[in-house]
């Protein structure tokens, strides 16, 4: 089934300084698909993101991106191939303006000469009109939800094929969390992106996801396919661990 998959994580084992966190994790993401990895704190979700992005060395297993083994490729090269991450906690540049933040995302390109930069900026502004409205405002003065949109927008400026989102709703009010996840769905529907999403807000995530993995203690415990996503009670039960 490697064919047709955008990203395939095979038997990933990794951890920090000898403490193993992930124990043979298998996750894959298809084209134009939102795959959500749900699990409680400490399940290893962020570790999975770090390993996929290359911040953490993978001890065992392999990462296949568009049929190519990228397990040994450094993070900044993975970005050039078309994988990018919106890290947990947004981490925008608060002292730069909104547009400067977005331009930083286009760092790989020759900003003055490459027409793709302007095109991507237009895409981002169409997706998030509020960012265009506040383009010359300092990013630190945006609200939490807007900062998250900016972080997603900045990641889009790298022109990715797959976007990794590490808890984009962290610290947001429920209404805003819903809005952010709706824009994530728009990324799939309008831009045709594949998305690997890590979340703790189970019900919100099931609303937009095409497939769900339940992760616990460094292992994938269940997989819910598209047709099973209506069984919310069962998902919740598995999430809580009954």
């Amino acid at each position: 089934m490697t064919e047709g998959k955008v990203l395939k994580l095979e038997n990933i084992e990794t951890g920090y300084r000898g403490v193993q966190v992930l124990w043979g994790v298998n996750v894959d993401v298809g084209p134009k698909e939102i795959v959500a990895v749900l699990g409680p704190n400490g399940a290893g979700k962020t570790t999975l993101m770090k390993a996929t992005m290359g911040f953490l060395k993978v001890w065992k297993g392999s990462i296949i991106f568009l049929g190519r083994d990228i397990t040994k490729i450094p993070s900044h090269e993975r970005v050039k191939l078309g994988i990018t991450l919106v890290p947990e906690g947004r981490s925008i540049f608060p002292n730069m303006t909104v547009e400067e933040n977005l331009m930083m995302g286009a760092y790989m390109y020759n900003i003055k000469k490459d027409h793709r930069v302007i095109e991507m900026l237009e895409v981002v502004y169409n997706l998030f009109p509020i960012l265009q409205e506040r383009r010359s405002q300092k990013a630190g003065t945006l609200s939490g939800g807007q900062q998250q949109m900016l972080a997603i927008g900045r990641a889009l400026m790298t022109n990715p094929k797959i976007l990794l989102l590490d808890e984009p709703t962290l610290g947001l009010a429920p209404k805003l969390a819903g809005e952010v996840l709706n824009t994530v769905a728009k990324l799939r529907d309008e831009l045709g992106l594949s998305i690997l999403l890590v979340e703790e807000k189970v019900l919100l995530a099931t609303n937009i996801a095409d497939r769900i993995y339940i992760m616990n203690q460094g292992r994938i415990e269940h997989e819910f396919l598209k047709e099973d996503l209506t069984k919310k009670e069962e998902i919740l039960q598995k999430y809580i661990g009954f």
Partner: peptide
Amino acid sequence: EDEDVANVMGVN
């Protein structure tokens, strides 16, 4: 500002 973010922007 943030090494991880710089990394995901393609900075070595």
